[in-house]
Amino acid sequence: MKRKIILLLLFIFLLCGCTKEDKKVLNVLNWSSYIPDEVIRQFEKENNIKVNYSTYSSNEELLAKISSSKEGTYDLIFPSDYMIEIMINRKMLEEIDVTKLTNYNNLNRQYLGLPFDTDNKYSLPFLYATVVLAVNRDYIKDDITSYKDLINTKYKNDIVLIDDQRFVIGMSLLANGYSMNSTNNEELRIAQKWLEKLKPNIKAYDSDCPKNFLITEEAYIGYIWDAEAKLAKMENDSIEIIKPKEGIGISLDNYAIPKGAKNIEEAYKFIDYILDADIMHQILEGYPYNSVNIATDLKYKDDIMYSSKYIGTDYDNNSKYFVENIGSSIKNYDILWAEIK
């Protein structure tokens, strides 16, 4: 009976046709909600390169995607600090030739030569993100200065967390006074107990767009990326951004070119494009993470995004912790994660 539909649809679709011209391509694999669509479109237009843009939502997913796909599938990826180390160990990255980048000097030296890639042989910083608390003050009036304050039976179903095992377990470790990268079994056990106490308060885990939970008031508290918190605050001014006293997690994301990439020239072009002060600013306007680009910082230092309002209430005395590569202990994290979820 519905066969006429099919025939008709087939006909319509044939009319639509498929016009695909031969163009240079660049296969980018990046975090979701990281580079605004317009920036990519501009780049495509200015350089006549077609960008195939795919996304991932955790470093582990990125690692899996790169290692299970054929070499040369992706040309440019954005791993975080500890993942760069893992990928270097597994010989998954091409060396980076900074002479191909005209805007290389825009990079803030402070973020070069970090322990995960001391000579920046395989990676260059893109920007960094921190994980902060965002609290809707219309509903949550209590003082919140510590992660421990989240364990409160009043907050049942009120919290949204990023879906990232290292940062969530890391928060629990910090809350209990341990290192965010602890591999001590006893400490991990205590961290698990703590997370089980937190469980009834968790509304959802979401890394891709946790701000929506806060904007729509689905959740009143978020343990989320700082850019998401800032965007939520722009929509809803009753949200307060808080950096708890135990310190916060930080993640420096980097440009890297996977082994066997086929469009390396285009990848450099893209990196160089983003290193430009104005383009980086445009990216930060879309997703207000933290710049590692000194040219952008100087040119836009009066920008609203740099105002204290969005930096939030700081109890942490500026202690920021990187996620570190913990080798095979990651298995214990995996099991713990499966058990608390």
Partner: peptide, 20 residues
């Protein structure tokens, strides 16, 4: 489910696409 509930499908997907 808000990413906090898992069924067999999620378990298989995670083993293949994240936990490797």
């Amino acid at each position: 489910g808000g990413g906090k509930i898992m069924i067999l499908g999620n378990l298989i997907k995670n083993q293949f696409l994240t936990a490797r």
